[in-house]
């Protein structure tokens, strides 16, 4: 797999996680559950892939983690968005939207309005 693809997927995953965590602290399971619910299953997420992303973002300081107890009194690690992470989310969301709009414009174009470049 080319590196570019990994970046794209990882970048997307990062935005999803950041957005999810903006609702409040949760553990990895909750993040996965929330993404599944919200996308109505349109994004088939390999849940395990969350963890490298979570740890990486923790090291970068976008999210912080603390240990707590889950519903069943298990040790669970809860992640929380940091101010840096919130800022990153805003930036990423904006550029994501720009990308989506731009791609959409291309895909929805009905005529070729731009004159061909003279050869």
């Amino acid at each position: 797999m080319a590196d570019r693809d990994v970046d794209l997927i990882q970048g997307t995953l990062n935005v999803l996680i950041l957005k999810t965590l903006s609702w409040g602290p949760m553990n990895g399971y909750a993040v996965a559950h929330w993404v599944r619910q919200t996308t109505l299953g349109d994004i088939e997420l390999e849940e395990g892939a969350l963890y490298p992303a979570l740890h990486r973002m923790e090291h970068r300081g976008w999210i912080s983690a603390e240990w707590g107890l889950s519903e069943n009194n298990r040790r669970a690690k809860f992640y929380r968005l940091t101010p840096a992470g919130r800022k990153m989310l805003r930036e990423r969301a904006r550029s994501w939207e720009r990308l989506v709009t731009a791609v959409g414009r291309v895909l929805n174009a009905e005529t070729r309005e731009i004159a061909p470049v003279a050869s």
Binding site: N27, Y29, H33, G48, Y51, S70, E71, R75, A76
Partner: peptide
């Protein structure tokens, strides 16, 4: 061990659900 706990929490939560 921390990582194992974290992953175990995820799997167990899924199974319970």
């Amino acid at each position: 061990a921390d990582l194992d706990d974290e992953l175990r929490d995820h799997l167990d939560s899924t199974i319970e659900a």
